[in-house]
Design a protein around this nucleic acid. Structure first.
Lengths: 203, 203
DNA sequence: TAGATTGTTAATCGATTAACAATC
DNA sequence: TAGATTGTTAATCGATTAACAATC
């Protein structure tokens, strides 16, 4: 779904005002019927004989992706990875804002990273309420992940991006996306090992 | 495929010597027939009436995943993310070894991170030959990604883990796994937005 | 009007599941 | 031997593709 949006943005940069299902499909390596089915699912956007209006479709996709609104995000765990993500520029301009930092380690509490002060994890509940946190990025060791995830869930946060290399158990109302870098590397090794080639977009 | 291995390792820790397709399947949320089909694909491991020998199967999976051998890996780009990955502990103990660092920025060349000296990108070819590099981790800005990827490919490296938020074009003999953190966050937002729940393991 | 392209229904294809003979 | 579980073939299910009437 994100990938449609990427293509539309590319089309927009090229100055196109409309785009056909055939063209979108071939850019993504899928059938035009598939594209029409996916897009029809979101409402009636296409104009028979013309195609899809790029700007209307972009807006609609943004809405379904949920990036038409703000997602105040907490980052938990300021190890190497956590600190890198605070400064990561790829998140900006996409309505994901890291608005508070947390860590259990007393030595890290009080430090400043990217203009934000690290707070103790006990205050998560209060801060979540104050700032209306909706998402949490977990950059913590495997051992602590489930425990912290439970805390996060208890605070009413409903989305977790998990970098810890363990599967999390959460109530069904909470969504989890896991990014396990070792698994990605294993996947790469597998492909290289068995491959005469092929490209995959895991992310 | 990685996920089977994770389950087997868990079983091993519990001291099991054999495991049934039913049990493996239910742990992963899939059908037992599916498990048998997947595993039969790798050879004849199962013993009718008993199940699968955990240690044999682990060995076999390791081999097909390619983590029974060493993967000397280059990390290119020592921005925030790159520096974090050098120190990332999740890679160790899984036969992925970051053995050399590269950056285009003259100010970064010569710096030491995690005991390795950053080298200029021009030397990639020589170093790749010397050290037998097989994989490259790309932590570079989107604008530079394709150009550096071309260099990497020219050096005979056949696997790329790409953290830059652009799709790379590479020859069919080269495998790419892309990890786009913004896409993962968008995916999370989408799930939260549209979700009555559900868990996904993206990686 | 004629050409093009959508939304959607029907046909095809592949993947998942069920079933069962073979075997420990 | 009886119970259990594999590997694999047949049946089912869902997803992808093709086709076409509706429409700009």
């Amino acid at each position: 779904v994100s990938l449609y949006l990427r293509q539309l943005e590319a089309a927009q940069r090229q100055g196109l005002t409309t785009i056909t299902s055939r063209r979108l499909g071939s850019a993504l390596g899928i059938n035009d019927a598939q594209v029409r089915k996916d897009l029809a699912h979101l409402g009636q956007f296409g104009q028979p004989g013309i195609g899809y209006r790029v700007d209307d479709l972009t807006t609609a996709l943004r809405r379904t992706l949920g990036i038409d609104r703000d997602w105040p995000t907490a980052l938990i765990g300021l190890g190497n990875l956590g600190r890198a993500l605070v400064k990561y520029r790829g998140f900006r301009g996409r309505n994901f804002h890291i608005v508070s930092l947390f860590d259990n380690d007393a030595r890290k509490v009080g430090q400043t990273h990217g203009g934000l002060v690290v707070q103790p994890l006990e205050t998560l509940g209060d801060v979540a309420r104050e700032q209306g946190l909706t998402l949490a990025i977990l950059c913590i060791p495997a051992e602590a992940a489930q425990r912290v995830a439970d805390q996060v869930v208890a605070c009413g946060i409903t989305g977790i991006l998990n970098f810890a290399p363990v599967p999390l158990t959460v109530p069904p109302r909470v969504s989890v996306v896991a990014v396990d870098l070792s698994v990605q590397l294993e996947h790469l090794a597998y492909k290289v090992q068995n491959a005469k080639g092929g490209i995959s977009y895991a992310g």
